[in-house]
Amino acid sequence: MGREPVAAFVGLGANLGDPAAAVRAALDALGRLPGTALVGRSSLYRSAPVDACGPDFVNAVAALRTTLSAPALLAALQAIEQAAGRERPWHHAPRTLDLDLLLYGQASIASPALTVPHPRMRQRAFVLLPLAELAPDRVAPADLAAVTSQVIARLP
């Protein structure tokens, strides 16, 4: 008997190479994961780096229905990052692709490898605005109000 599908949300970002193309390719790759359907994709957004350096990021959020466990989904996200040439020379380095598991159903997970909900998602406009497009019930108005000073723009 298989695992029941879970609604999961993944934050995507890139600021090296062609970041918009990298985010679009990653969205497509998410839809090809085993036991996973891509059920929604936000608009693309351009945002200034937060606690990081380098050029502006292109960000989005994907909504998934998946039968993968949270650790298996995290491993799949990391494999997509690696396939896109992700390197980790230092913390918050510019990147070809960054995929973060933001929410996994209603789960609260705190392990050395994974924390869900993502510990900093409520502090980042580049997560909250695209997440609010897909799941407005998962974003508190007070959280959106707290990030209004962060520079972000929806891409055409």
Rank of each mutant, 00 (worst) to 15 (best):
E81Y: 11
A60Q: 07
R3G: 02
I109E: 06
D28H: 06
N15V: 05
V61L: 05
P117K: 10
L101F: 03
P55M: 07
G35S: 15
G31A: 12
A132R: 10
P5C: 09
A7H: 14
A113K: 08
P5N: 13
G11M: 00
V147E: 04
L12N: 01
T66I: 06
F9D: 01
Q82Y: 07
A72H: 09
S111G: 13
V147H: 05
L12A: 03
G11N: 02
A113Q: 15
P94L: 13
A25T: 13
A22D: 04
L114V: 03
L64E: 05
S149M: 10
G105H: 07
A83N: 04
V50H: 07
A145L: 12
P49H: 08
L16M: 15
A37F: 11
V50M: 04
L155Q: 11
V50Y: 01
T148K: 14
A7Y: 06
D51E: 10
R154I: 11
L30R: 01
Q82T: 15
T115P: 02
E133R: 04
P112Q: 04
A132F: 14
P117N: 07
A84H: 15
F9N: 00
L74R: 03
R41N: 03
A29R: 14
C53Y: 06
V58N: 01
A76L: 05
R95C: 04
E133Y: 14
